[in-house]
C-alpha cells in the first residue's frame, strides 16, 4: 500500500494478511475487510503512521500496514 503512503489518504481494507496472532489482533480492533480508514500523519522518524479508524486514532507500523491489502478511495 506504499502508493497510499501520504497523510490525508482514505483507504479501504480489502484483506488482512500476516501471521495468525498478528492478523487476529488487527481484525479484532476493527480493521476488517470493507472498513475504511484515513492516514492522519507519519511519525517524524518516518514510521509508524497514525491512522483513524472507527472513530479512534491508532499507531500502525509501516511493515504492519503492508499486511493490509487496501484500495485508495480518497
Amino acid at each position: 500500500m506504499d502508493h497510499a503512503r501520504r497523510p490525508g489518504a482514505h483507504l479501504r481494507v480489502v484483506a488482512v494478511n500476516g501471521e495468525r496472532g498478528f492478523r487476529r489482533r488487527l481484525l479484532e480492533m476493527g480493521l476488517v475487510p470493507g472498513v475504511e480508514f484515513k492516514v492522519i500523519s507519519i511519525a517524524p522518524l518516518g514510521d509508524p503512521w497514525q491512522i483513524e479508524v472507527r472513530g479512534g486514532r491508532w499507531s500502525l507500523r509501516r511493515a504492519e500496514a503492508e499486511q493490509l491489502v487496501v484500495v485508495d478511495v480518497t
Binding site: 496472532g21 498478528f22 489482533r25 488487527l26 480492533m29 509508524p48 497514525q50 479512534g56 486514532r57 491508532w58 499507531s59 500502525l60 507500523r61 504492519e64
Partner: peptide, 8 residues
Amino acid sequence: LPFFIELP
C-alpha cells in the same frame, strides 16, 4: 506484536 496502540 503489531504496534497497534491507541492514540487517545
